[in-house]
Simulated scan of single mutants.
Amino acid sequence: MITEDRADRSWRPDPDRYRDVPYRRAGRSGLLLPPVSLGLWQNFGEDRPLEVARAVLRRAFDRGVTHVDLANNYGPPYGSAEETFGRVLRSDLAPYRDEIVVATKAGYDMWPGPYGDGGSRKYLTASLDASLRRTGLEYVDVFYHHRRDVDTPLEETAGALDAAVRAGKALYVGVSNYSPEDVTRVADLLRQLGTPLTLVQPRYSMFDRRPEGALAEAVERAGAGLAVFSPLAQGRLTDRYLDGVPEGSRATRSAYLSTDDVTEDVVERARALNRVAAARGQSLAQLALRWVLRDARTTTALVGASSVAQLDANLDALAGSDLEAAELAEVDRHAAPAGGTLPV
């Protein structure tokens, strides 16, 4: 459904876009990110209208969301989310490139054969070059290794990330889906090369608290920040599934969430957490976002958005008071156990 680029030069971003955003530092780096960032995982492929993607990206920038998170295989099909972002960059956002932090990743399967997956220098270098072509950028701000490749020496993967920075193709580097031990190892290797680890991406929500403890401590020791994904548990921490699985929902059509993941236990927990949110005057999604941001080590939470209204609702999570001790205790009663995950 992507159509040709049509620049709208009448659009100008909100001049007050930075006024009320409490930007957070990524570890001990100089990089500041908004507490809620826009992830382009599932709503920016060729199956979605370009005008919707454009409207969401422009609205995000209007509200001070300066960080956009991509990966080489986001779509569908693979690569199309980067192409969509590139089109909106050319038509609308190019004059503001220096105000935007663009992140992309490589590590999962991207093209056939032995060099289109994993953590080798060949794959990471070729993938980043392809990402730059698709987005039309000269460099990305953050380049992540998307997952640990146990068949490739970590020294090689770290060397490829360092080489990307030295070649001027990336400004910062990060890793995603790494264990605490591998975060520590790759951070040490990168430090020796002179390119510090800046960001680590884990899955984190009230239903998946595994980053608490060892991972968060490893990230803090490394001087990096946490950029957490799936803070809404693929929609299970929204009002979408409070009455079961509706027809046409993500659980009925996504490769990443199935109806088996929306158990009665999950629904009951979500309903209880929704009551906590309502007592605060928030939606369940807003409570879930506010909760993952309660720890200063969380630099940013990545959220998707299929519409401007959904984006606005998520960003409105930043309004209101911090969670109080009694509210946190009530969340603990219905969330996954500290450091654990629900059996789904």
Rank of each mutant, 00 (worst) to 15 (best):
A270K: 09
E327M: 07
D243H: 14
A227W: 05
D265F: 12
V266Q: 11
A214K: 13
A158C: 04
R290S: 13
L197H: 03
D47G: 15
E327T: 14
V219H: 03
F85T: 00
P202M: 10
D265C: 11
Y241A: 13
V267R: 11
S127V: 01
Y18R: 15
G225F: 06
V292H: 02
D162A: 15
V65M: 02
R221N: 14
E156Y: 06
Y96S: 10
D16F: 13
L323Y: 00
A163E: 07
L287A: 10
R203W: 10
Y96G: 09
R290D: 12
G281D: 08
L342S: 03
E330I: 08
P49K: 00
G194Y: 07
Y172D: 08
R121N: 03
R210Q: 11
A55M: 11
P49L: 01
A170M: 00
Q234C: 08
D239V: 11
L171T: 14
R294I: 11
K122I: 01
V267F: 07
V292R: 05
L237M: 09
G86L: 12
L242A: 09
T195Q: 04
R58G: 12
W41H: 09
Y178T: 01
A216E: 15
R97C: 11
G27A: 02
W291H: 01
S120C: 10
M1T: 13
G45H: 03
L199R: 05
R240T: 15
G75I: 00
E99I: 14
R58W: 13
G64M: 07
Q201D: 12
V276H: 02
L57C: 10
H146F: 05
D92I: 05
A222P: 04
Y78D: 13
G30F: 05
G223L: 10
V308F: 06
V88W: 13
G30W: 06
Q286E: 04
D239C: 08
D149A: 04
E220D: 15
R17G: 08
